[in-house]
Design a binder for these strands. Structure first.
Lengths: 214, 214
DNA sequence: GGGTTACTTTACGCATCGGTAGATAAGGTG
DNA sequence: CACCTTATCTACCGATGCGTAAAGTAACCC
């Protein structure tokens, strides 16, 4: 059994991180409503009042989790996309790799963002985050195709949805790991997605309607 | 104030439908946890005990909503796909049309299924429903490409995710209606999706190492 | 050692909400 | 009209969980 925690005094910033990490873990497992502040306290190894000292109310704590994980995900994708003067297809592929890599390495954060918060008072915030990712995808696509952003917006939503669906399969289906084989799963998943949507996206004409032959 | 409802006696089946409809409406707006049984009762125009008489416990009521809406959606998509001896691409397109059509005409049901139930004790059931739709898509794709189902499963998840993303955009973005223009939105959305994923899916079969297994 | 303060323990207020018991009346039947 | 069945309502209980108050304890710094 683990030894009795000898009640260490820590700097407020360190404790704050502990509480936040515990909150992300508990929220990802139990969901917002299912998670109790007591559970967060136990997970963090502290008492309940401390959670309130460092994390604020339950809503504030959850919002903090949301923002931290969202910023992390967005930043990694953004930096992976690289400078705007590079080749758009390569940028898109790298961004997708970063996206899938973030999911596989930080599952809890993704779970909090995508599966636990779609309802309640945080639906708006989660949607805003999703929108930021979609905007990023739309920028990449618009730059690559030479098309105004309004035109590619629905396709950007489609692309992000496709990524979510593929990610969900990879994270939940036990046979998924066997299917992707060896190597970095993020690479395999990104290649899969590019194989599906790449050819179609390339056919979206700059000037006219979508090529739509049967 | 509105006229006091003079406490009409109704047949149990009629009341049961009233309660179920109210439950779908409230659950779609507030989510499972956010919805209270009192709210369902008010929406149905009855008192709370009646909700328990006709709907059972909150869990049972929610499960009933889930199953009814899921069956409706699955049945409409399945019947739209048509007989297995027809052309696979046309079947896929028709199935997608039926899918989008169901969303636009029965928004509340879709909301309950897709956005409110991803957490809590119903995550398993919602995932099972999603899986049934994915399986259906996988069957269509496997039939069209002449490939074992295990190989197309990730692509089926991708396709369904893409449809969800596009649907979410259409249902939430105020500018979406203007973008799709006149005509049945379901047709436009299905065509958009086929334009994005169609070419890519067609190239799946030859690239894989499929022929290795007997 | 002494002081500061991070931290714990314990207990409780309070609101919300699922669920139920007993009373009430609506409608059919003789 | 008397009366019985039962659909329906008003009022309530109990549990859960957020959030906090009060008082004591011990770790780090000088």
């Amino acid at each position: 059994m683990t030894s009795e925690a000898p009640r260490r005094r820590l700097a407020p910033e360190v404790r704050r991180l502990q509480v936040l990490d515990a909150a992300v873990a508990v929220f990802s497992e139990e969901g917002f409503h299912g998670a109790s502040m007591d559970a967060v306290a136990v997970r963090a190894g502290v008492s309940k009042p401390l959670v309130y000292v460092h994390g604020g109310s339950k809503d504030e704590l959850f919002a903090a989790c949301l923002h931290r994980e969202a910023d992390r995900l967005l930043r990694s994708v953004q930096s992976a996309a690289g400078a705007p003067d590079e080749e758009p297809p390569a940028r898109l592929r790298r961004a997708l790799r970063a996206f899938f890599h973030a999911l596989t390495t930080r599952r809890q954060g993704w779970t909090v963002l995508w599966r636990q918060a779609s309802t309640g008072p945080f639906a708006g915030e989660v949607d805003a985050l999703r929108r930021r990712i979609v905007e990023q995808a739309a920028d990449l696509m618009a730059g690559g195709l030479g098309v105004p952003r309004t035109r590619v917006l629905p396709y950007a939503h489609t692309l992000v949805g496709a990524a979510e669906g593929l990610a969900h399969w990879w994270l939940t289906d036990p046979e998924a790991a066997a299917t992707t084989g060896p190597g970095d799963p993020a690479d395999v998943l990104a290649d899969m997605l590019v194989a599906v949507v790449g050819p179609g996206l390339a056919t979206i004409a700059p000037s006219g309607a979508v090529s739509d032959e049967r």
